[in-house]
Write a protein that binds this DNA or RNA. Structure first.
Length: 635
DNA sequence: AAAAAAC
């Protein structure tokens, strides 16, 4: 199962296996049984999918429904005539690419020869008296003659995107609004704009306000308070914010708001190239370090782009690239991507970054670490993305080590540094326990913990291990011990990963064993317990991992198994526990004392200064000055 | 040393 090296028959087999276990298909009774639907498309309404059924051949339909987004999921009489659009006609050579038109803002309908100048986006008309479209056909706005045409509302789409008010799954009830005022916020840089305390029309566009309201967010979280005016005033941002503090909204709200205000960029004349089709020119690009995180961000983007001219898309590896290409060539204004797949699409000539005005690096410290940095540099510096002065760049992460801040400077101009939450530490919402457990005792201690909590705890337990192999072994062990468990790691297929995450999220399988792939950014409500079965070697990873619980003001528990193998992080761990007002076991202090303070590793010197690392190094950094980049390693 | 991310 975990070694998926089947070749020829793989695809068919995958399709054949599909209808069996996927509860999405079963529960919603959609006509898609037997087909793989990526997570971000699974909530499409029945009518939407049915309406597409008669249009094209079976094979085509799999692909298009897989990656198709809302925009083309609904019949559009004006664009498609009698609704006889076929995938073949779609790719016919006589179709003119939208990007090689004389007019910069071309019509995006797909019928060959159809042309309406100054029109961008979907149909905006068809209003009914109450503003709702009863047939559930719209939700796609447009831009015409400098005016943002907001599409009619659709109760179908709204239920898909926003859930119903009593839908516990979707609610953000845990947000402790009173506590927001106590959270320290530090904004440094030149002329830092004043924070806003409400979602209001200036500076936000009215339409984004309406989508924020539909999502039931009532007041800005601390990071949003500042990111909104910072982005609206054209500034760059490096934001260091506690996990679960609304970082995604922190960049989506102001970016979409600006896009709604200003409309699409004029498209450049198409360069001759191998690929003659419609190229995607996203106005905003969001990069994320894992596929699941990209998918999660995209889900949010769909909510806040609802009824607007902005079409969000997502691309990531491990999923069929052709479907993704078809999706983005239908229009792609706000693209969320993992780096590898994006580079692939750029090489294929399917994506140009020449119109990208907003660049977001989520989990930025991860994106700029040794594994990712070359790819990021390539995307940002060696493709056709506008230079640092012609775009706005935003970086977000819960941790921002000083050396990464130095690196990040290459991508930013006169940025505001924002530090939200308990600086450099984890939230007090999380009760952190550390237990001394030898490797050979870990299994039985884990079982004890799980036995103790299954009684009345209906929350989810996330268990982190260091290796993919251990993730497999441990989840198998738990299952054999009678605990419903699943696992997620990079050697599982994308389908397995998504299914594992989904069954965990819904609570069907309340225990998940995970590698670092699940450590960052994933927003899974109701994770009440994070267990570090293996502690990471980097304290920042620990911070991100335990941040999967205690989200949005909820409380959570974290348990770490510590033994001699983990003494490398002992001092940083103690510092962290102190800052978060956690109990520190006496034996842990002993281990720290026994661990030589000069212990050979360079880690103690550069990174560990506790609170220092999440503060603006321009202001708090020790010896290195702004101008001394390149020779700053003399501590 | 391991994990993640493209085929």
């Amino acid at each position: 199962m975990s070694n998926g090296k089947l070749n020829g028959a793989r695809l068919e087999q995958q399709f054949a296996n599909l209808g069996i276990n996927d509860n999405h298909h079963q529960s919603s009774g959609k006509p898609t049984a037997g087909r793989y639907v990526p997570p971000h498309l699974r909530s499409q309404s029945v009518s939407a999918l049915q309406s597409r059924r008669p249009h094209s051949g079976w094979h085509q339909r799999i692909e298009s429904e897989t990656w198709d987004n809302r925009r083309t999921s609904f019949p559009r009489a004006d664009a498609w005539g009698g609704g006889s659009r076929s995938e073949m006609g779609y790719s016919s050579p006589q179709r003119r690419g939208w990007s090689d038109r004389a007019s910069s803002q071309g019509d995006r309908s797909y019928r060959p020869g159809r042309y309406q100048s100054n029109n961008y986006g979907g149909r905006g008309g068809n209003f009914s008296e109450d503003g709702f479209n009863r047939r559930g056909e719209d939700g796609i706005g447009s831009w015409r003659d400098g005016v943002h045409i907001i599409a009619t509302r659709s109760s179908f789409i709204e239920r898909d995107l926003f859930g119903s008010p009593d839908d516990l799954d979707r609610q953000h009830t845990g947000i402790n609004f009173e506590k927001y005022d106590d959270i320290p916020v530090e904004a440094t840089g030149n002329n830092v704009p004043e924070g806003v305390s409400n979602f209001t029309n200036p500076p936000l566009d009215k339409h984004i306000l309406s989508n924020i309201e539909l999502s039931r967010y009532s007041i800005p979280t601390p990071v949003q308070k500042y990111s909104i005016p910072i982005v609206s005033s054209g500034r760059d941002l490096m934001a260091c914010a506690q996990t679960g503090s609304g970082k995604t909204g922190g960049f989506l709200f102001p970016i979409l708001s600006e896009l709604f205000k200003h409309g699409p960029s004029p498209l450049p004349p198409e360069q001759p190239g191998l690929y003659r089709g419609r190229k995607a020119y996203p106005a905003g690009l969001i990069l994320a370090p894992t596929r699941e995180l990209a998918s999660q961000i995209f889900d949010e983007a769909r909510k806040f782009a609802y009824r607007s001219w902005v079409r969000p898309c997502v691309v990531y590896g491990g999923a069929d690239i052709h479907g993704q290409m078809r999706s983005i060539e239908r229009g792609c204004d706000l693209l969320t991507a993992t780096p590898g797949r994006l580079v692939d699409l750029i090489e294929r000539g399917r994506v140009s970054l020449s119109q990208t005005r907003y660049l977001v690096l989520d989990e930025a410290d991860r994106m700029l670490d040794m594994g990712f940095e070359p790819q990021i540099r390539r995307i940002v510096e060696q493709e056709d993305m506008p230079g640092v002065n012609e775009r706005q760049t935003l970086m977000f992460s819960a941790t921002f080590p000083r050396d990464i801040q130095v690196l990040a400077r290459d991508f930013l101009k006169d940025y505001v540094f924002l530090s939200v939450g308990r600086v450099g530490s984890t939230s007090e919402n999380i009760t952190q326990k550390v237990e001394y457990v030898e490797d050979e005792d870990k299994r039985s201690v884990l079982l004890d913990i799980l036995h103790a909590q299954t009684k009345n705890d209906r929350g989810l337990t996330l268990i982190f291990v260091e290796t993919k192999r251990m993730a497999d072994l441990l989840s198998e062990f738990l299952i054999n011990s009678g605990f419903p468990a699943t696992s997620i790691h990079g050697d599982r297929t994308q389908r397995e990963r998504e299914r594992a995450l989904d069954s965990f999220r819904t609570g069907r399988v309340p225990i998940m064993v995970a590698t670092a792939v699940a450590a960052r950014g994933l927003d899974i409500p109701n994770v009440t317990h994070v267990i570090n079965y293996d502690l990471p070697t980097d304290i920042d990873d620990y911070v991100h991992r335990i941040g999967r619980t205690g989200r949005a003001g909820n409380v959570g528990i974290s348990t770490a198994f510590f033994n001699r193998g983990n003494k490398g992080i002992v001092r940083e761990l103690i510092e962290l526990l102190k800052e978060a007002n956690q109990e520190i076991p006496a034996w842990l202090e002993t281990v720290a004392r026994e661990t030589s303070s000069y212990g050979g590793s360079s880690r103690g010197g550069n990174r560990s200064r506790g609170r220092g690392q999440n503060r603006d190094y321009r202001k708090f950094g020790s010896s290195s000055e702004r101008g001394s980049y390149g020779s700053n390693n003399t501590e």
